Each structure stands twice: as C-alpha cells, then as structure tokens.
Amino acid sequence: MEVLAVPVLADEGFQGPTKEVFQTPHWFDIGIGSANFYLNKATALTIFAAVFVAVIFWLGFRRAKIIPRGIQNLCESAYDFVDVQIARGVIGEKGAKYTPYLLVLFSFVLVGNSLAVIPGAQFPATSRVAVPMVLSIITYVMFNYAGIKANGARAYFKEMVDPAPTAPLGIRVILAPIEVLSTLIVRPFTLAIRLFANMFAGHLLLLVFSLGADYLLPKPPYVIGVLSLLVAIVLTAFELVIDALQAYIITILTAAYIGGAMSHGEHEVAPSEDLAEHAPVGVPAAAHA
C-alpha cells in the first residue's frame, strides 16, 4: 500500500517588526542630477497632516460668524486654548503675536501623531526624525529671532556668552560655553529627539503586541494571544493620550524658548532705576548716590 506524503508547512516563528515599517518603500523615485525626488507612505502622511490642518482651519474661518458652530467652534476652541494656556500663559501678553505659529505647530503634530492609530494609515508621521528636525529648526529660528528683535542682536548674544556678569571669572568661563551650547544646539536637538523618540518607541511597542496577537491567537493556549490582543488595545488608547501630550509638550517648550529669548536682559536693572525704586518717597534718587 502506497502512503502519500502530505507536506506540512513549518511554523517559521514569530516575525517581529522590521526596518521596512519605518523605511517604507518608495512609490516612485525620480533622480534629477544629484537630487532625488520620491514619495512613500511616510512622506504622503506628512503631506496629508499639513493639508488636513490647513483645510480644517480654512473651513473654520472662511465664513466666520459671531456665534461659532461646527468646525468654526472647533477651530476657535483650539485657538483660544493655545492663545490663553500656552502663548499668553507662558510668554505673556507679548506672546499673542506667536499664537498662530504655536497653533499650527500644535495642530500639525497632533494630527501627525494620531495617524498612528488611524486605520489605513497606522503610521505616525512624526516617527521619522526628519519631520521633528524640521519643526525644531523652525522653532530655533523663531525663538532666536524673537530674542534679537526684543533685545537687539548685541544684547541678546552678549548675555548668551556672559550670562552671569557679576559672578567670579572662573564661574563665568564655565557658564559661557554651557549657555551657548544650551541655546544654540541642545534646545533644538532635544526638542526634535523628544518627539521623535516617543513616537518611534510608542509605534514600535504597539506593533510588537499587535503582531504578537495575530501570531498567538490561533495557537493554544489561546489565553496568551488574548492577553496580547488586550494589551494592544490598551496601548492604542494610551497612544492617543501620548499623541496629545507630545503635541502639547513641543508647543509649550517652543513657547518657553520664545519667552526666555525675549526676556533676556530684563533682570538687569540700571543703578539709577534701582535707587529710584528703593528711595524714600519725596527724596530724589540722586541723594542716595
């Protein structure tokens, strides 16, 4: 009696996330000289986030009414939140002029982050380091411009290289490079890395448990697959909270950098002003000189 051999498919084991998750394949790639133009999922989602934010605010304010409704109500609520809680709350009344930028920054990052849990997209645009780097460069230019405009270039950079003019020389020598590195290098770098690292790690963790659930659910004991699925669901909800939190953090840090740059030199009080403030009523300040 002839026995037929039945091929059995071997279990290749759990296949975790690969680099292709973040290095998505190009849909098209065009080289013109030394320049290379391409479009992939990550780039398309970044463009979508920018266009989505622009369209929402255009629809909200194109026919603004005294009593807001629908999209206008949403847009005005977002504007009020950023203006009152972040721009004016961190920078002060002078921060109102920076509210539009802070609003766009907050909205774009929130939408870009939230794409991680949107079916069909399932990829945070901000998990590619290039996007947070561009945002941090814009912020870098913004807060240095605000500092120079508020104090003048000479006073702004003078306080940067000599933040404690009354301190001993040794302390001043130590503080000078720390302040320069902090303002010109560390701030934009950490601003970008903070957003990138949180979104990269969060998306990777969500992928691990989602793929784990897909692999383990058909296999006994089924409880392991069910637990992995439950963790993936909980992480999805947690990811939404992180998305909003990271958008808020990058916006409020940007406001803090702008406010700090604008307040350079405000703590320095001229001797005559200091004497006038502490002089007894009716006694000229010159009498105390």
Rank of each mutant, 00 (worst) to 15 (best):
L74F: 10
E76A: 03
S77D: 14
S77C: 12
S77Q: 11
A78L: 12
A78P: 00
A78D: 03
Y79I: 08
Y79A: 07
D80V: 14
D80A: 13
F81D: 07
F81N: 03
V82F: 02
V82P: 02
V82T: 10
D83M: 06
V84E: 14
V84Y: 08
V84P: 06
Q85C: 14
Q85R: 13
I86Q: 02
I86S: 01
A87S: 15
A87R: 01
A87G: 09
R88L: 10
R88Y: 10
R88D: 08
R88G: 03
R88H: 10
R88C: 08
G89M: 10
G89W: 07
V90A: 05
I91C: 11
I91G: 10
I91E: 05
G92W: 14
E93A: 13
E93W: 13
E93P: 05
K94Y: 13
K94G: 15
G95L: 05
G95Q: 08
G95A: 08
A96D: 12
Y98C: 04
Y98S: 05
T99V: 14
T99Q: 12
P100W: 00
Y101E: 13
Y101A: 12
L102M: 14
L102K: 11
L102E: 15
L103Y: 05
V104H: 05
V104G: 12
L105G: 02
L105S: 04
L105Y: 04
F106A: 07
F106S: 01
F108G: 02
F108V: 15
F108D: 02
F108Y: 15
F108K: 00
V109A: 01
V109P: 01
V109I: 06
V109R: 00
L110H: 00
L110I: 06
L110M: 11
V111H: 01
V111I: 14
V111W: 03
V111S: 03
G112H: 07
N113C: 15
N113P: 11
S114T: 14
A116P: 04
A116V: 10
V117Q: 06
V117L: 01
V117D: 07
I118G: 11
I118H: 09
I118Q: 14
I118F: 13
P119W: 07
P119T: 14
P119C: 11
G120H: 04
A121E: 09
A121H: 06
Q122K: 10
Q122P: 01
Q122D: 15
F123S: 02
P124I: 10
P124E: 09
P124Y: 05
P124G: 07
A125I: 09
T126G: 02
T126L: 10
T126E: 11
S127I: 12
S127N: 11
S127P: 11
R128T: 09
V129D: 08
V129M: 13
V129Q: 05
V129T: 11
V129C: 05
A130D: 08
A130V: 09
A130Q: 06
A130I: 09
A130K: 00
A130H: 01
V131C: 03
V131N: 02
P132I: 02
P132R: 02
M133G: 00
V134S: 00
V134L: 08
L135S: 02
L135F: 09
S136A: 15
I137D: 01
I137N: 00
